[in-house]
Design a protein around this nucleic acid. Structure first.
Length: 223
DNA sequence: CCAGACGTTGTT
DNA sequence: GTCTGG
DNA sequence: CCAGACGTTGTT
DNA sequence: GTCTGG
């Protein structure tokens, strides 16, 4: 999404980052850039597909891909156990979309930090190895209860981490109690919701879904 | 022991 | 791979 | 999540 | 209605 350099500088801290051709649109099944902790304990950027495929799956079929994991229970789920202990990641973004149901049609909203400040979603990743040796890297985004701002639109929202939490999220597993600190939704006062055009409803537009692509006037307008 | 699950979102 | 249910 | 497909024969 | 693809 917008201003990827700023996002990456924030999320990678003092570490270097590559001028990669990474995508910054996070779309199910598509590749995007995530921040992980490398072998040498430093942060690095890696491209992965959104939709976690656990290493034990026989075949990485699309219907088993998990795009979200509930933070309240992630420590107990067999599918996420290994990843939550050893493979956490940050997903750079500057907003996300939710749809408010209504009789006249679903109204999409852009939801972001005030002024569109970049942030990181809490994520998990995994490696799936094919019999031919090729490796598929995938990730999932954690969700929690919606805060007071988002709740009228959608009951759940992604786990957004502030600067302090980002560092904590990338630390090694400290038992299931260590997960609780990430269960609270990001503060409503630090966020804004903006009604946007139904242009974003069309998956064909995923590659151009970004702040600049959407009218921010607050009125539902078709392009 | 073996077989089968292992997940989330939303339900105009 | 690892856990649960039968 | 939403949009769009949803099928078979036979294969220069 | 239900599944797949984005």
């Amino acid at each position: 999404m917008s201003n990827p350099k700023t996002i990456l500088h924030e999320l990678l801290g003092e570490h270097q980052y590559p001028e990669s051709e990474a995508r910054y649109n996070v779309t199910p099944g598509q590749t995007s850039a995530v921040v992980i902790v490398g072998e040498d304990d430093s942060r690095c950027l890696t491209n992965m597909q959104w939709g976690l495929v656990p290493s034990w799956l026989k075949k990485p079929t699309t219907d088993h891909r998990m795009i979200n994991a509930r933070v309240e229970t992630v420590g107990e789920k067999p599918a996420f156990r290994e990843s939550v202990a050893h493979r956490r990641c940050l997903v750079p973004a500057d907003g996300f979309y939710e749809w408010r149901k209504s009789a006249g049609g679903n109204q999409p909203y852009l939801i972001r930090l005030n002024k569109g400040a970049p942030f990181g979603f809490a994520g998990l990743w995994d490696r799936w190895r094919g019999s031919d040796g090729h490796v598929l890297k995938t990730f999932t985004i954690l969700t929690t209860v919606a805060n007071a701002l988002v709740e009228p639109i959608h009951k759940r929202m992604p786990v957004i981490l502030d600067r302090q939490q980002r560092d904590a999220w990338l630390l090694p597993w400290a038992g299931p109690e260590g997960i609780r600190q990430f269960c609270d939704p990001f503060p409503a006062l630090a966020m804004e919701t903006i009604p946007v055009s139904t242009y974003v409803n069309n998956p064909a537009h995923d590659s151009v879904k970004c702040v600049e692509a959407v009218p921010l006037s607050g009125r539902q307008t078709l392009f």
